[in-house]
Amino acid sequence: MRNEAAFGVNAEPARFDIARKRVWVAGHKGMVGSAIVRRLASEDCEILTATRSEVDLKSPDQVRRYLAATKPDAIFMAAAKVGGILANDTYPADFLHDNLMIAANVTEAAHREGVGKMLLLGSSCIYPGTAPQPIREDALLTGPLEPTNEWYAIAKIAGIKLGQAYRKQHGCDFISAMPTNLYGPGDNFDLSTSHVLPALIRKAHEAKASGADHMTIWGTGAPRREFLHADDCADACVFLMKHYSGFEHVNVGSGEDIAIIDLARLICDVVGFEGEIRLDTTKPDGTMRKLMSGEKLGAMGWKARIGLRHGIAGVYGSYCAGLPSAPFAMSLSDRAHQL
């Protein structure tokens, strides 16, 4: 058992040196996991990764065997089943079951194998839909969740509480970070499962490519959302791994939000689509506003660096580069230099 005084409920921030450590990034092929791998490349550490064929995180035996064989000193737990409103509403059992299993298996195995530190990544959807803005960490469990993603949110809340329970009972140095809405290279652009920002990028691109005179977005356009580039999130996660060792989870965000209609206009401007933006008000808006307080992380000395317009331009460039033919990739490169 670890030292309760050092890692107990009331522990203060403490330095964890990852230099010359073995660091496992679970979920390294995902948008956030790959960003963490990129960020760790500048650290003097050994990065461990495993594909789904090498270790199924829903299998407790496979996770335990992997940790016993690789013996990581630290873990970034970025693996999760994720999706937007439609995916959450269509596959509630999958989102709840799979994310519960992943969190439980990795946390238990990390404890059993004596992992020195673990950071579990959650989501801003853990907060009540009616939480006061900006949302502070202590708003957790103060009201009902947004119905469109409650299954995923419940699994993420369970992950937070699981880490806290292992800290309290076993003295494990497990911490949790709750990022806001993320975007970046490697995002999911499938319109049936994606989040709003990549979905809007694809819609604007396809509208331009087809010569359409309009594109349609879900809802009223009035909801406001905060966005953070995945590379900023990765930097915050490494910062927390090094400098934070507390019981409470920590919000990770940009500190600014934008109305969905204004986001759509910004994306259309970056893409170069000049048609009309139409609203499908038969579709749900979700939570009307979700801006997180970054006061706690800011007080530690961290802040986001990638502006939204610049970040969107980079993501659109990577999206175009990944298409079978990229008719706008070259023009976007020129455009990105002007943003």
Rank of each mutant, 00 (worst) to 15 (best):
M1D: 09
R2M: 14
R2I: 14
R2Y: 15
E4W: 07
A5I: 13
A5W: 13
F7G: 05
G8S: 09
G8A: 09
V9A: 11
V9D: 06
N10D: 12
N10Y: 12
N10K: 09
A11E: 10
E12W: 11
E12N: 08
E12G: 04
E12V: 11
E12P: 01
P13G: 05
R15P: 04
R15S: 12
F16H: 05
F16Q: 03
F16E: 03
F16L: 05
D17Y: 06
I18W: 10
I18A: 07
I18Q: 08
I18N: 10
A19W: 10
A19N: 15
A19S: 15
A19T: 15
R20D: 13
R20P: 01
K21L: 08
R22C: 01
R22E: 00
R22T: 01
W24S: 07
V25K: 03
G27C: 08
G27Q: 05
H28C: 14
H28A: 15
H28R: 12
K29G: 12
G30D: 14
G30C: 13
G30A: 14
M31W: 12
V32C: 08
G33C: 05
G33V: 02
G33E: 04
G33A: 06
G33Q: 03
A35N: 12
I36Y: 04
V37Q: 07
R38F: 10
R38I: 10
R39G: 13
R39M: 14
R39L: 13
L40R: 01
L40Q: 02
L40P: 02
A41R: 11
S42H: 15
D44G: 02
D44Q: 09
D44A: 04
C45N: 07
C45Q: 08
C45I: 08
E46K: 00
E46T: 02
L48C: 04
L48K: 01
T49Y: 03
A50F: 03
T51F: 03
S53I: 12
V55F: 02
D56Y: 00
D56K: 04
L57A: 02
K58E: 14
K58W: 05
S59R: 06
P60Q: 09
P60C: 10
D61R: 07
V63R: 01
R64D: 12
R64Y: 08
R65T: 14
R65F: 06
R65H: 14
Y66N: 03
Y66L: 13
L67C: 01
A68Q: 05
A68S: 05
A69F: 05
T70E: 13
K71N: 10
K71M: 08
K71S: 11
K71F: 02
K71I: 03
P72H: 08
P72D: 11
P72L: 10
D73P: 00
D73T: 02
D73R: 02
